[in-house]
C-alpha cells in the first residue's frame, strides 16, 4: 500500500505539471452552454440533423436574424417565440459560438 501510494504521488505530480502546461481543461468557450439550447432543433453544435444548419454561419447574420425574430411584431414561426427567450447579450454570445463551429453553413 505504501509503495502504491508513493508511486501514485509521483505520477500525480508529473501529470499535474503536464496538464497545467497543456491547459487540457480550460474554461469553456463563452456561449457554449447558451448555444447548446439551439441543438434540440438544429443538431449538436448547430450541425444538424434538424432545422436550418447554424454552424459556421457568419456571426452577424445569425445575430441579426435572431434579433429580427425576437422583435418581430407578429408571431409566425416557433423561432419568433424562442428568440424572445434570451437577452440581446445572450443572443450575441450564441451567434459568436455557432459561427465558430465547423460546418458547411448550409440551410
Amino acid at each position: 500500500m505504501l509503495i502504491y501510494k508513493q508511486t501514485l504521488i509521483g505520477t500525480v505530480a508529473a501529470l499535474a505539471a503536464l496538464s497545467l502546461s497543456s491547459g487540457a481543461h480550460a474554461a469553456p468557450p463563452a456561449g457554449q452552454l447558451l448555444a447548446s439550447q439551439c441543438a434540440q432543433c438544429h443538431g449538436t453544435n448547430g450541425n444538424g440533423p434538424g432545422f436550418d444548419e447554424l454552424a459556421g454561419k457568419p456571426t452577424n447574420e445569425l445575430y441579426n436574424e435572431l434579433r429580427e425574430m425576437k422583435y418581430s411584431q407578429q408571431i409566425e414561426g416557433i423561432m419568433d417565440r424562442q428568440a424572445r427567450g434570451y437577452t440581446d447579450t445572450q443572443l450575441r454570445l450564441i451567434a459568436d459560438y455557432l459561427a465558430a463551429q465547423p460546418g458547411a453553413g448550409d440551410d
Binding site: 441543438a39 434540440q40 432543433c41 438544429h42 443538431g43 449538436t44 444538424g48 440533423p49 434538424g50 432545422f51
Partner: peptide, 16 residues
C-alpha cells in the same frame, strides 16, 4: 412535417 424534423433533431442531440 416540422414535428418530425424536431423529433429527429432532439433524438440525435440526446442519443447520438
Amino acid at each position: 412535417e416540422d414535428m418530425f424534423t424536431w423529433a429527429d433533431s432532439l433524438f440525435a442531440d440526446c442519443f447520438v
